[in-house]
Simulated assay, not measured.
Amino acid sequence: MDLGIQGKVALVMASSRGLGQAMAVSLAREGVKVAVTGRNPEGLKQSLELIQAAGGQGMVLNWDLADLSVIDGLVSQVENTLGPIDILINNTGGPLPTPAAGQDPALWQKSFNDMVLSLIAITDRVLPGMRQRKWDRIITSTTSGAIAPIKNLAISNTLRAALLAWSKTLSAEVASEGVTVNVIMPGRIATDRLRQLDEARANREGTTYEAVVKASLGQIPMGRYGDPREYGDAAAFLASQNASFITGTIMRIDGGQIQAI
């Protein structure tokens, strides 16, 4: 299927590994020019190599989401090198596991800046051009914990839920101008991050990693973890011409795991 996005330009945040990398590569397979970002030089190099192996064109940007002052300059680099940004993939790394109670307010503030305010500011930087072109895509990757809170991931659950409300509100503001705004939500996708969380749970509960995985698979109707490519391909579809009438919604890639309707 031709998704109708060949030659478009995408900026994919936090794409040196994991789900961000998977989304970047899936877009590259469709002929999208992709800017990948992150703080891991080796991971960024790998992402660029994967983009090129998929037949795509890309660039890398060392980008610390905590620093709002670099947004304008780095976005300008993408625009000057690849062209105006047609597809923005909002994505961040996950915070350390924590309970809800007793967290330092400074940690909440830092996490908010890294995971919420940074993405809003980046979106605001690219949005004027998107509205002028009247064909653009904003896709925000969150977590299933935003609608079905995950134990011991209180910061992630809370702050990514805020992104759901922001995305829905923004979608109505720009829909008539041809810009779609959607959320993509993973269940349990087989990334390094998921392995770390499963290992942390095993340590916390005094059990084995294998036992944690077995219990997790029992909660997924499909009986397996998702492949990162499946997540990336779903994001590419939302970015496509084929998805031009989809906005203000949440796409779950979860194998049927999330119980909320």
Rank of each mutant, 00 (worst) to 15 (best):
L3R: 10
G4M: 05
Q6F: 07
G7F: 04
K8L: 10
V12G: 01
S16C: 12
A24D: 11
S26A: 15
E30T: 08
G31N: 02
K33Y: 00
R39V: 13
E42A: 11
G43W: 11
L48M: 12
Q52E: 15
W63Q: 14
A66T: 13
V70C: 03
V78W: 01
V78T: 11
E79T: 11
E79P: 07
N80C: 13
N80F: 06
I89S: 02
N90G: 14
P95Y: 04
P99L: 00
A101L: 15
P105F: 00
Q109Y: 08
M115Y: 09
L117G: 08
V126K: 10
G129S: 13
R137M: 01
I138Q: 03
T143F: 03
A146M: 03
I150K: 03
N152R: 03
I155Y: 02
A162F: 03
W166P: 10
S167W: 00
S167A: 14
K168E: 10
A172K: 15
S176C: 08
T180V: 04
I184W: 04
A200E: 07
E205L: 12
E205V: 03
Y209D: 14
E210S: 12
L217R: 11
G218D: 15
Q219S: 11
P221D: 00
Y225T: 02
Y231A: 08
D233S: 13
A234L: 08
S240C: 09
S244D: 12
I246T: 11
T247C: 09
I253T: 08
D254E: 08
I261A: 13
